[in-house]
């Protein structure tokens, strides 16, 4: 009894040693590239530091109090939130629908799968440029196509009047990734379940309801969280799809319209355009906490309400 206990603690210790051995690179990287920087940011957010301040003093949580009274920040968080939600719906609903469509037993599905996924491979800066020209009011292919087909008589200002739509369209274009995740999910469903349902005479809609959806729910939950987090972190596309912000041949970091002035561009504007370092850090810290809390609450709900064979 005694010796067994000792060997188990010995193994436990060895295990822990190995665990940290393998985690060490990540821990080091996390500490150096993320933890220290965000703590530095937190520290700076407690001062009145501006970009080129001559004197800096400690002000405690003053900046945080200001954040809660700042209408602009609230608007940006709201815009980000709306975008993330809509984007999550696109990623989950359309991603799942596409996965179902290419998962049917027809010839050539591999081909379609491949090409639906393809836009996701295009780097995001290139996506921005391609779509900027695609959606341009005067020279854009979409308006040319629509007017050739006689659907519109006057060119539509996609970038100016429907900015949020264009950024969401970019999300839609890159839905292949989500499709792939759901395909992976569909592949985990044992075909015996469907065979059994066939025997019971269940139609395709019923099979979707009683087998596919419950079995795939962990994947839906996963995709919801990940899409939400990525949506909250959207940064570069609003600049590339900003209708007014090309000067010379370049995209400038000019603030996008309200509907796509997300919280990261807002943070960028505060810190780098307006030079409000401390305040910008406070805003981003608040954002971080919001994302974290929402994700954790969400993960908890998802864990309770989905079918899952959760591992470790």
């Amino acid at each position: 009894m005694k010796s067994k206990l000792r060997t188990s603690t010995f193994f436990e210790r060895e295990k822990r040693k190995s665990f940290y051995l393998f985690m060490s690179l990540w821990i080091l990287g996390f500490a150096v590239f993320q933890l220290i920087p965000i703590l530095w940011g937190f520290n700076a957010s407690l001062t009145n530091r501006m970009a080129f301040s001559l004197k800096v003093k400690f002000v405690g949580f003053e900046n945080y109090l200001k954040v809660f009274a700042d209408e602009g920040v609230f608007q940006s968080i709201y815009a980000t939130f709306i975008f993330s939600l809509l984007n999550t719906v696109i990623q989950v609903a359309l991603g799942f629908a596409l996965a179902l469509v290419v998962n049917t037993r027809i010839r050539g599905k591999g081909f379609f799968r491949l090409f639906y996924y393809l836009p996701y491979v295009i780097p995001v800066v290139a996506t921005g440029w391609i779509l900027r020209i695609f959606f341009d009011k005067n020279v854009g292919t979409l308006n040319i196509l629509l007017s050739n087909l006689g659907i519109i008589s006057q060119n539509i200002s996609w970038l100016g009047d429907h900015t949020l739509f264009t950024v969401l369209a970019a999300g839609f274009w890159r839905v292949g990734w989500s499709m792939l995740i759901f395909l992976g999910g569909l592949a985990t469903i044992p075909s015996e379940l469907y065979d059994a349902a066939d025997v019971d005479g269940a139609g395709p809609v019923r099979k979707l309801g009683i087998i596919t959806l419950p079995m795939i729910s962990p994947f839906i939950a996963f995709q919801c969280v990940v899409s939400f987090i990525y949506g909250m972190q959207e940064f570069i596309l609003p600049y590339l799809l900003n209708p007014t912000a090309i000067r010379g041949g370049q995209v400038t970091m000019e603030n996008p319209p309200r509907a796509t002035f997300f919280i990261l561009p807002k943070g960028y504007d505060l810190i780098f355009n307006k030079g409000r370092l401390a305040y910008g850090f406070a805003v981003l810290w608040v954002t971080f906490i919001i994302i974290l809390v929402l994700s954790l609450i969400y993960a908890r709900i998802a864990k309770k309400s989905t079918y899952s064979e959760m591992d470790g």
């Binding site: 341009d136 009011k137 200002s157 970038l159 009047d161 209708p243």
Partner: peptide, 11 residues
């Protein structure tokens, strides 16, 4: 001048 509905392509 240009506005959100009537945009310019380029500067």
């Amino acid at each position: 001048s240009s506005n959100l509905t009537n945009t310019l392509s380029g500067w």
